[in-house]
Design a protein around this nucleic acid. Structure first.
Lengths: 332, 332
DNA sequence: AGTCGCCACTATATCGATAAATCATTTCGT
DNA sequence: ACGAAATGATTTATCGATATAGTGGCGACT
């Protein structure tokens, strides 16, 4: 392995000068600079990032911790974050938390040990009051779900507004008995309750009753879960002409489940999802959905985490992504 | 920041003893071990990975470089690799290459500087003869696509066998004019030509003609590309009763494109894909597809890269994943 | 002339952990 | 009972880069 000393010897200068050239710090005359660059090229030298990190305390890496890398919305997010971080000279390392508080705490702890400069955490299991949460000493941006605004920066989705728009859209299309397929923790303030509130508010505003029987809960927010929920909705004989799904994965599962039972979408039932995953556009029927601006979210998250890396004492803030309602075949 | 020396002072031992406790190296008496562990707990000490890496030369991190993190099959792969690597005590850092030789070379170079212990590279743009490729000095496992078996370990997909099985399946279902939707480099030996060969071989074996007019090419292997290909196939008036798609993404696009034109699947045309992405099962109609064993591939790749990390001089090998044909509604 | 300031570069001391060598003690074999 | 081996802990010398202080030389200003 070629070290900086080797290059220094080759160029006939001190290794500090090599360091200055490598890091473009200036104060090096042009002929010497050229000699050093030549020596670097001919020796095939590469900086040892561990050594640099050890001395400087900065890694140039931002951690991105998500519930499952194998989830539809994750790819969109990761791609944007990698892109945005790259523009600011940061690399991104991806962690998987398993959608549990355990894993999320682990990711935070690991961030310290691996010495990420900052962490973007898409937390779903973590409670804002969890005692294992670190203080404000490490740059963390919470993404998408729970609201930790008091302690950390938070980039959230338009949960209530989005679901309200989705529900209103169904009403506008003539739906009168609108079901909601959701699941998880229905107490406190979180994604589930917020999206649920958007739904009830829209119904009340439009003068429609909120029927608890039209709330179908599911376990994992997956296509498989959605499919089974659709089966239960149909098989139970409940009457409904529209469904709001908590995510697109679930909505795509619903489409499948309705197809299993011979229920036509949108003729018999209209369906609207949330996320605008890539597949939503290509489903049959294509899926109407709430499309939060993922690019905006990624850009904001990276902006916040890099800002906090530079100035750890800046005040935290709460930011909500804009969204659009994509009207497609499933509500036509 | 708490260092090992701080812990040593607190426990009244040398820092080497602390190191021995932290790394479970043994040779430490139980009472001293306990004292050190207490000191670690009370001080909140965490090892500094940069320092450890600098000295030991090992990072405990395996790089996983893929074309786009935002691709259907990637999630499945990444999840498996993370899981398998975790079992062996490695973490996984994900890189994005942008599906170009440039990015792939970059990923390899970066692996050195970030000092990954090894790299699993899903190369699509790189030529096996590229001069920028490093020698056998760094543990690299090529995944999925090109065949670099002479220089690197390679875990491949059953390209020919899989597509042959898919094509034969269509024939068994009564298809006689089977189109193939593919794209990219049709010369040399790569995914495209291999899958294409599986298709032609199956047709010839079953005594069916190979009609070049039934080969529809596309640009990016995406759902959007598949959708457009379906439009072209239908609008051109070519007659066909089955389609083999080069990937599931393309196949899902085909389903969408046929729906646009009122072509029924499987009644009018049967469709089979390749990959068995999670959505294939939930599409309407659900997609018949070649399902390479992703878990097997991930396990093998991790096994190979860790083996080479331990013994860099071991001979390279070529490994092909087993597969299953999932028969679903699109060919029923 | 003196000295102040600047420039280009060098010397030295770390950053935090660990491999290898060393040093006390015990324990053991014969 | 004495040397050999085993045990438990410490010392020392790095790993490769960089922050900081320092050096010599030269022009400029008073």
């Amino acid at each position: 392995m070629v070290t900086m000393s080797d290059v220094a010897r080759l160029a006939g200068v001190s290794k500090m000068t090599v360091s200055n050239v490598v890091n473009e710090r200036g104060g090096v005359s042009e002929p010497v600079r050229r000699r050093v660059l030549d020596a670097i090229r001919s020796s095939g030298y590469r900086v040892n990032v561990s050594a640099r990190t050890l001395k400087s305390g900065k890694t140039g890496v931002i951690g991105l911790a998500v519930p499952h890398v194998n989830a539809a919305y994750f790819g969109v997010l990761a791609e944007q974050v990698i892109d945005q971080a790259g523009r600011r000279g940061f690399h991104v390392a991806i962690e998987q938390t398993g959608a549990a508080a355990e894993g999320e705490i682990e990711a935070i702890a690991y961030s310290h040990t691996l010495q990420f400069d900052g962490l973007i955490l898409s937390a779903v299991g973590l409670d804002p009051k969890d005692q294992r949460l670190p203080g404000g000493d490490f740059p963390i941006v919470m993404l998408g779900e729970q609201d930790f605004a008091a302690v950390f920066d938070h980039v959230g989705m338009p949960n209530e507004a989005g679901t309200r728009a989705a529900t209103e859209h169904l009403v506008d299309r003539g739906c009168r008995r609108i079901a909601i397929v959701t699941g998880g923790d229905l107490s406190g303030v979180n994604v589930v309750t917020r999206r649920h509130r958007g739904y009830t508010e829209a119904l009340l505003e439009r003068g429609l009753p909120v029927d608890p029987a039209l709330r179908e809960t599911l376990g994992p927010w997956s296509a498989a879960g959605g499919r089974e929920a659709a089966h239960r909705l149909v098989d139970s004989g409940r009457e409904f002409d529209g469904v709001v799904a908590v995510t697109d994965s679930v909505a795509l599962g619903l489409l499948r489940g309705f197809a299993d039972r011979g229920v036509r979408v949108p003729e018999d039932v209209r369906v609207v999802g949330y996320d605008d995953v890539p597949d939503a556009e290509f489903a049959v029927p294509s899926l109407s959905t709430v499309a939060p601006d993922h690019r905006w979210m990624a850009a904001k998250a990276v902006e916040l985490v890099t800002a906090r890396i530079e100035d750890p004492s800046r005040p935290t803030g709460e930011h909500t992504a804009p969204f659009a309602l994509r009207e497609r075949e499933s509500t036509r």
